[in-house]
Amino acid sequence: MGEFMMENRIILAIESSCDETAAAIIRNGSEIVSNVVASQIESHKRFGGVVPEIASRHHVEQITVVIEEALAQANMKPDDLDAVAVTEGPGLVGALLIGINAAKAFAFANNLPIVGVHHIAGHIYANALVQPMEFPLLALVVSGGHTELVYMKEHGSFEVIGETRDDAAGEAYDKVARVLGLPYPGGPRIDKLAHEGEEAVSFPRVWLEEDSYDFSFSGLKSAVINYKHNMDQRGEEICPTAVAKGFQESVVEVLTAKTLRAAREYKVKQVIAAGGVAANKGLRTSLDTVFAEENIPFFVPPLKMCTDNAAMIGAAATPMFEAGIRGNLSMNGRPGMELKSWV
């Protein structure tokens, strides 16, 4: 991030948009000084998915503990900080409000500025914690709630050139996992099963209009449900590894092809993947292969930087802070917040 005048800029970041209560300390937008995540996944497992009210209850139990731990691991005091960053949206509103109100109270008590960060900008900037971002850049954001292709011409400039018209990729994974009787969260289990499979059931690829960068996964999900239903009616057992492999091949092929076409059209210098589904081995391997052939640098953050965390929020907040972006004490949660450029 050579274009910023930064001298030891220290930001405390807080993230609570879904089912992780997280806090981190980031130096100069690129170095993780500490990164603490309290996951609620064990609590939500019994419900087969994230229950918003339960998530909010856990956030309020954990929030000060997590922030204190982030400061303690960094061996820092509030005086050492330049700003507090927090996820402003999108996400579960009741969950967002805990991080936001904790951030506001902390910022007020310690006389620090506050920066509200878009969760997806955070996922994209997780990459800045691994290697410098080179522009123009293309980001494939894939998670339980998002499937987007984002073009960035420079820091703080976001153009969503494609997005899902129905289910997010991660959502389709979780639903198909349920059909296969796999416990929540199903994505990583399908990835694992797909790699164990030798045969693959053939499922359709949904390309939409020829020039579209949008995605659609609900038809694929229905195809898997219908396949299971038909097999059940015929009294035949489905082969879970073959279903997982066929489903994953369809998702990965469409994601890879559209990302490749966009990377060519926009002549980007770097392609990055971000979000929980970017942890998927099948997707990583596929993107790695095509972009190696294409000779475009492709990066995906390590696993713990793909799932929700506060380090990525701190990484995105740093260039915002340098650009003079500030929130205030009336900051509210924005569950449907749009990804907008700040430059």
Binding site: E53, S56, R57, V60, I63, T64, I67, E68, P78, G94, L97, I98, N101, A102, K104, A105, F106, F108, A109, N110
Partner: peptide
């Protein structure tokens, strides 16, 4: 209100802890 209670408690907890 669940949300109302949580906002007050979150503000109070964070202020009390950091101060």
């Amino acid at each position: 209100s669940y949300t109302g209670v949580r906002i007050g408690v979150t503000l109070a907890k964070t202020l009390a802890w950091t101060l």
